[in-house]
């Protein structure tokens, strides 16, 4: 399983796009929004938590279809399915690789983009904490969506349609943490709920995703 993680990370780095694309997209969102809504600091400060979370979510979405599609196309997924690695474990490891390549850089880059969007000072800590807690859920939920659509030729758009509704609870609680943090309010409740969703998704979705992959390989 560690071998699979190392291989996926190595593939992502060699292919180049892995780290860079999601981050670049995140940056673009943070640049485009002020251009669209205007430069007033008060407006930006108000919408910054939501925009940063939506941006992170969309950046995650961009690279989801690569989690399984490449392995499906070149036959690796067939071979993995007949190998001693349990499919549930393979799903979890691949989601982890996706998070390390996409989610983690977003968490680290978010404070910088917070500056662009005039996020209030108290919000930075909660921005990083909420993204660190929430983006793993985005990766594993996305892996489930990618597993459902792995056999389809043009699955990308359909996958977005399936995954985005599943992202909503995470988005709501994640953005709420930052919003409350930025306003100097207590963040305990949404933070606990966000963590609960991530923990539940990490515990259960690998099984659903593995079942979907087995069906798709049939």
């Amino acid at each position: 399983m560690i071998a699979l993680l190392i291989r996926d990370l190595r593939l992502a780095i060699r292919a180049g796009g892995g780290f860079g694309l999601g981050l670049a997209f995140f940056l673009l969102v943070a640049v485009i929004v002020p251009l669209g809504v205007g430069p007033e600091p008060a407006t930006l400060a108000k919408i910054a938590p939501g925009i940063l979370w939506v941006g992170a979510l969309l950046s995650c979405l961009l690279s989801l279809d690569r989690i399984f599609a490449l392995d499906f196309e070149d036959g690796s997924l067939d071979l993995l399915a007949t190998s001693p690695v349990p499919m549930e474990g393979a799903v979890a490891v691949k989601a982890l690789a996706h998070w390390l390549v996409t989610g983690l850089p977003l968490v680290l880059a978010a404070p910088v983009l917070g500056v662009l969007l005039n996020l209030p000072v108290q919000g930075y800590l909660w921005l990083v904490i909420s993204l660190a807690l929430g983006t793993p859920a985005l990766s594993i939920i996305g892996a489930f969506g990618a597993a459902l659509t792995v056999g389809l030729k043009r699955g990308g758009l359909l996958m977005s349609l399936l995954v985005l509704p599943l992202y909503m609870p995470t988005l709501i609680f994640g953005a709420e943490v930052v919003k409350r943090g930025a306003a100097g309010m207590a963040v305990g409740t949404p933070l606990a709920l966000l963590a609960a969703i991530t923990a539940g998704a990490l515990a259960l979705l690998p099984f659903a995703a593995a079942a979907a992959i087995r069906v798709n390989l049939r």
């Binding site: 489930f144 509704p165 599943l166 909503m168 609870p169 709501i172 609680f173 709420e176 709920l193 979705l205």
Partner: peptide
Amino acid sequence: VGSVFAFLSRYAVLFW
């Protein structure tokens, strides 16, 4: 899976 998340969304938006 959708049922679980639809249920979660129901309470998430109530919170929101």
